[in-house]
Structures are given as structure tokens and as C-alpha cells.
Amino acid sequence: MSEQTASLTLDCRGMRCPLPVIELARRLSDVAVGDVVEVAADDPAAATDVPAWCRMRGHEYVGALPAADGMPAYRVRRLS
């Protein structure tokens, strides 16, 4: 399912924790339930904190994909 195209990509490069997660929480409701949001972030904490946020908030962490510039993009599916 990780091939599903992201409906929204958040560019969080250069942001330090917890800003990428705050941005994700603010913008998730911009997409429909079942859609995927992609968070591109270079903050190393995002690798742990995006999945932890999904667990705490009841959304699905789909996985990480390298973005075009090699930076990781963390993919989240809105579940509710």
C-alpha cells in the first residue's frame, strides 16, 4: 500500500522536533480519511516521532520513502 500517491506533501526540511509532528497534526485533516500525507523531514527524531504520533493519535504509519533529494519522507494514512 506504500505505493499509494500522497495527497499532500509537507516540506518540513530544516525543522527541528517537535515542529514536523506539529505540522503533520495541523494538516492531516486537509486530506480525506484513507488518504496519505507525506512528511519530508531531515530531523532525525522524526523517524521515531512520526510513527509514535500515529500510534498515539490512531492513524496508520505507512513507512518511510526517500524523497527525490534522498531525504526521508514519512507516510501517514489518515484513519479517522
Binding site: C17, P18, A45, A47, T48, A52, W53
Partner: peptide, 10 residues
């Protein structure tokens, strides 16, 4: 926290 998959900030 990382090894536990726990939230690392805050």
C-alpha cells in the same frame, strides 16, 4: 526512547 519506539520529544 528511539529503541522503544516511544515519542522522543517532550
Amino acid at each position: 526512547l528511539e529503541a522503544m519506539g516511544a515519542l522522543t520529544h517532550g
